[in-house]
């Protein structure tokens, strides 16, 4: 009872497009990516529930001929929640636009700082650091005090 190949290809296509859009800089494209990923996920839930069959109305057909109702219920919930998420993201994009004048996803400033500190440190390692630690440092607290510098 595997997913048929056509549906597998559709899933692959939807997820590819969704992932690709998520990796874009434009917030609007990111939101579209989430919407398309949501579509892909809903379709995944539905087709994983088995091949097409009779709609699940009690008494209308034999249970064996019906499709599985549980994935449908799950997908239904997922659809609604995707909608809620999309709306909220759109409001965020709108807010970003109103405040910043663009809807581009910026690099995180804090993280960039860490990356630059790392680059600086690597540059420092190449220059020879003189080994200044005296033998008395073994005693633990006789070591010279390093300056109390707050990293900036």
């Amino acid at each position: 009872m595997t997913v048929n190949i056509t549906m597998a290809v559709v899933l692959a296509g939807l997820y590819t497009v969704g992932f690709y859009l998520l990796m874009q800089r434009s917030l609007m494209r990111v939101i579209l990516g989430i919407v398309i990923l949501g579509h892909g996920a809903n379709l995944f839930l539905q087709v994983a529930g088995g091949p097409p069959g009779e709609p699940v109305f009690a008494g209308s057909a034999l249970i064996e001929a019906m499709v599985d109702p549980l994935p449908q219920a799950l997908a239904l919930t997922a659809i609604v929640i995707t909608f809620a998420l999309t709306t909220f993201l759109l409001a965020l994009a709108y807010r970003s636009w109103a405040l910043l004048g663009h809807d581009e996803v910026q690099d995180d400033v804090e993280d960039r700082r860490i990356r630059e500190a790392e680059r600086r440190r690597e540059g420092m390692d190449e220059s020879d650091e003189p080994d200044t630690e005296p033998a008395e440092a073994v005693a633990g607290f006789e070591a010279p005090e390093a300056s109390e510098e707050v990293p900036r």
Binding site: M1, V3, M7, A8, G13, Y15, G18, F19, V47, A48
Partner: peptide, 16 residues
């Protein structure tokens, strides 16, 4: 994205 998307589809086939 294509690799990840295909991976999800393969998962779908295998799990189902």
């Amino acid at each position: 994205a294509a690799v990840a998307g295909t991976f999800v589809a393969v998962l779908a086939v295998l799990f189902s």
